[in-house]
Write a protein that binds this DNA or RNA. Structure first.
Length: 888
DNA sequence: GAGATCACG
DNA sequence: ACGTACGTGATCTCC
């Protein structure tokens, strides 16, 4: 090691701590002091120490408010929000923590951390040593060189990006020295550096590509055409000053020598004491694990005995015990189960836990274990069996006999519970804790597989935890009347969803690309026009910049405000449209960029090259009402309302030649459910007579005959119906219909008088929620509403609306889930080749061979209509086409 | 990570 | 007097 180059790690303290503060959720210690920024800072330190293995170390801070930069420009860093007390109270803790790491810290009045770091990095270079800078501030890139690498935090502080001069050249086409020219031209709003108005990153990069430096741009200012040239000429001084402000001063007078920066690592016991004081228990746990064999980390968790399958005799024991096995855990890494990697597997009998690496599972020797997994007669308990099925399937391993899933059971017992992890479940059910996954693996990019024995013992603890939870959870399902819901609906559905996801839906990349080209033409044209009408270039996607252009520059009447500034959402813009032609362009631009980024680019990324299909992941344990959600990508929000977006659906096609897409959707399922659970005679009668429900509502609300209902009355009645389903309020309805609150209140009163059963339901359900603390759907799915008794009006009102809405939305979710289970049975029983592909809350999408078309057109709506018998008929409408667009 | 916005039912 | 419609997920910007 002696001849190795030494390496100094230089940390921009203020920048990192700020990022950490905003990136992490609030976190306080037992005395109420915030610690989130310190926590983030600590995890960052641990990560860079491990990855960079520095020999020298320093954390630099800004000192005080005024620096030499203010001498030339008093407004420097003006307009900044002052540091919130939740952050400033963390600085003493932070400095103490850095001390616990035995790391030196330094600040110097009149200079910023950047300048200190720049000076020390220069020193490292002069000594022929290496420097690594960690910051959240792009300005630091100017310091990069052969010997100086800059790590910029990306998301929060958990990820860093490594910038060498090559990387900067790749990304921006600039040398490190040109970073200050970039800032000089584009400015930096966060430091209140003006730059040249109308010049953003794109324009600045273009100018630098042509002229290289700010000075050279200014020397050739005469050549620059148009509005841009005018801006350059009028703001030459501003550009020069901005460049100067952005330039890091590398000659800070300080008496540090290279040797004085030396760091020989932290003292584990001193660090542990520091972390304990901050109450960062999870970090202590992690440190103990990293310190391989440091011992004494067990705390309250108890080691669980297990057999690591290593030798022949272990395989023999495992295979012999398989007939008694009833529980397993597949450990995998990654959020998307269609991509996540298997890590290891635990298999357990009531007496013994066996541990194998995922690699071992894939080996020939595990053939009996794979048979066990695929054996439907071997009932299995686990945690997130749906995910396990997908992970195993990618390795060609089948899973059958799913009997009990503690995650799914826990979701039914309390669907709003935020932490569905095993660790969280144990805590809520009064069971002995186990270390969290995060403590074992780290989080995000810090993910790291621990040594095998650490991994195995963690997995053994998880398997043991699942076993300890399974009994009590099953009992609770029984006690709360959710046994049928679990065993007849949710558990079977999990496998059906996995099947749909594995099947996937064929998606034509060319169709999306073609459409994307059209969208891009529109986007380019609109962007040019918007910039022209605004008289400057700006980022239309930035609500802040857009607000400034619209309200400050163009002087349009500003409407609603958000926490961060002017609101510019579609509702606000639509009101502004008559004042300036730019507004409509912005609305159209928004529509197209949304389609382009989310649906064209987003979906293209999700098409798997192996089969040309998109495989979504339906999440069964997320929505508080019992609905499914769809992720990676979300296929439940593919555009339909506007024709331009609807075109996207043409890309979704059958996966077999000559087959067709069949889509069936429930007609007015939520209002039919309302008719059933409220028992309102008028509403029930309307559905029994197959009336148009919005027309019927209009008749009763406006007191007219069917013939007298015009389209406007029907539109308003439709909004009333939506309002009823959402848990009506006069304010909400008035917003939606753009009428006064009084008028909206009158509509609601009319409605409730016309449908007295609904009024009674709305009153009763709120009362029920107050008495029981929860509401239920038709088949007993629960949602707890603790806020129903809140003294705060807003919070309480929200809970009341939820009480009114959840039984309706939730029962509709129950119904379509039952239909899916019945549908799956019917397809199998009849030996049909048709496949169920998607569920979109009230719609099921299939791909169907032509010879089954007639059968399916009958079967699907029949099963959907009969899924759950109500006091009113349920109706499903079927459409067929060559793609999802045509199946309308 | 949070907030704003917008896509769906 | 209070000031929101119910339920999701993806993308982008900003600190």
């Amino acid at each position: 090691m002696g001849t190795d180059r030494q390496k100094v790690l230089l940390i921009d303290g203020n920048s990192i701590v700020n990022r950490a503060f905003y990136a992490l959720p609030p976190l306080t210690n037992s005395s109420g002091v915030h610690t989130n920024a310190v926590f983030g800072f600590t995890t960052m330190l641990l990560k860079v120490i491990e990855e960079e293995k520095p020999t020298h170390f320093l954390v630099a801070f800004d000192a005080g408010k005024v620096t030499f930069r203010h001498e030339g420009y008093a407004e420097y860093k003006g307009g900044r929000q002052k540091t919130p007390p939740e952050l400033s109270e963390q600085f003493p803790l932070l400095k103490e923590l850095i001390g616990a790491f035995s790391i030196q810290q330094f600040e110097l009045p009149g200079y910023e951390a950047d300048d200190i770091i720049g000076t020390l990095a220069r020193m490292a270079e002069e000594q022929g040593q290496e420097a690594v800078i960690v910051s959240g501030d792009k300005d630091m890139l100017q310091l990069a060189s052969d010997g100086v690498t800059v790590l910029l935090t990306r998301k929060g502080v958990s990820e860093v990006e490594r910038y060498t001069p090559e990387e900067i050249a790749n990304r921006y086409g600039l040398t490190p020295a040109q970073i200050v020219d970039l800032k000089g031209l584009m400015g930096d709003s966060s430091d209140n550096i003006p730059g040249i108005p109308g010049v953003g990153e794109k324009t600045a990069l273009k100018l630098l590509a042509d002229y290289g430096t700010v000075e050279n741009v200014l020397d050739h200012q005469g050549e620059i055409k148009g509005k841009l040239g005018e801006n350059v000429r009028n703001n030459a001084d501003s550009a020069r000053m901005s460049k100067k402000l952005a330039t890091i001063f590398r000659e800070v007078p300080m008496d540090w020598t290279w040797d004085k920066l030396a760091w020989s690592g932290y003292d584990p016991s001193q660090l542990e004491a520091g972390l304990r004081k901050l109450e960062f228990r999870s970090l202590i746990e992690r440190l103990d694990l990293y310190a391989a064999g440091a011992g004494g980390a067990a705390e309250e968790t108890e080691a669980v005995e297990y057999v690591a399958v290593l030798e022949d005799k272990d395989w023999e024991a495992l295979n012999r015990d398989l007939r008694k096995a009833d529980l397993f855990i597949v450990e995998s890494h990654g959020d998307n189960p269609h991509q996540s990697e298997g890590i290891a597997i635990a298999v357990a009998t009531p007496e013994q836990i066996y541990l194998l690496t995922y690699e071992q599972l894939l080996s020939q020797e595990a053939s009996e274990l794979k048979e066990w997994l695929a054996d439907a007669s071997k009932g299995k308990t686990g945690y997130d069996l749906h995910r396990a099925e997908l992970v195993l399937a990618r390795s060609g391993i089948e899973l059958r006999g799913q009997e009990f899933d503690v995650q799914l059971a826990a979701y039914l017992l309390d669907p709003t519970e935020a932490d569905p992890s095993l660790t969280g479940l144990l805590q809520r059910h009064g069971q002995r804790a186990i270390p969290s996954d995060e403590a074992i693996y780290g989080k995000g990019v810090k993910f790291k597989l621990p040594a095998r024995d650490v991994l195995f013992s963690h997995l053994a603890a998880k398997a043991d935890a699942v076993r300890r939870l399974a009994g009590p959870l099953a009992k609770e399902l029984d006690e709360t009347g959710m046994k049928t819901l679990y065993y007849e609906l949710e558990q079977p559905l999990a496998g059906i969803l996995a099947g749909m996801e594995k099947q996937g839906i064929r998606t034509k990349a060319e169709a999306l690309e073609e459409l994307g080209k059209e969208f891009q033409t529109g986007i380019d044209r609109m962007m040019t026009n918007i910039h022209r009408l605004a008289g400057m270039e700006f980022n239309i996607g930035s609500t802040r910049q857009l607000g400034e252009v619209l309200f400050d520059k163009l002087g349009l009447p500003s409407g609603r405000k958000t926490k961060t500034g002017y609101s510019t959402d579609a509702e606000v813009l639509e009101r502004l449209a008559p004042y300036h032609e730019i507004v409509q362009l912005i609305l159209n631009y928004r529509t197209l960029t949304k389609l382009q980024s989310t649906y064209i680019e987003g979906l293209l990324k999700e098409i798997r090259p192996e089969d040309g299909k998109i495989h979504t992941y339906f999440r069964q344990t997320i929505a508080a009402t019992g609905r499914l959600s769809s992720q990676f990508p979300n296929l439940q929000n593919i555009p339909i309302r506007l024709e331009e977006g609807r075109q996207i659906r043409k890309a979704f096609v059958p996966s077999e030649e000559g087959w067709l897409i069949l889509a069936a959707d429930y007609s007015q399922i939520e209002l039919r459910v309302l008719a059933h659970i409220s028992g309102d005679e008028g509403l029930k009668e309307a559905f029994r007579n197959e009336m148009d429900i919005h027309t019927k509502t209009a008749m009763d609300v406006f007191g007219v005959t069917a013939e007298q209902v015009d389209s406007n009355m029907r539109r308003q009645a439709k909004a009333v119906n939506f309002g009823i389903v959402y848990g009506i309020s006069d304010y909400g309805l008035s917003q939606n219909l753009n009428i006064t609150r009084k008028e909206a209140g009158d509509f609601i009163e009319q409605y409730l008088s016309a449908f007295p059963g609904v009024r009674k339901y709305m009153d009763d359900i709120k009362e029920q929620a107050r008495i029981d603390g929860y509401v239920t759907t038709l088949i007993g799915r629960r949602r707890y509403l603790p806020d129903i008794k809140a003294s705060n009006f807003n919070i309480r009102s929200f809970a009341e609306r939820t009480a009114m809405n959840t039984p309706i939305q939730g029962t509709a979710a129950d119904i379509i889930k039952f239909a899916m289970v019945r549908m799956d049975e019917a397809l199998k029983a009849r030996g049909l080749r048709s496949r169920m592909l998607l569920q979109v809350h009230d719609e099921l999408v299939f791909e169907v061979p032509p010879d089954e078309l007639d059968t399916m057109k009958e079967l699907v709506p029949a099963i959907m209509a009969e899924a759950v018998p109500l006091d009113v008929p349920l109706k499903a409408e079927v459409n067929v086409g060559l793609n999802w667009y045509e199946a309308k």
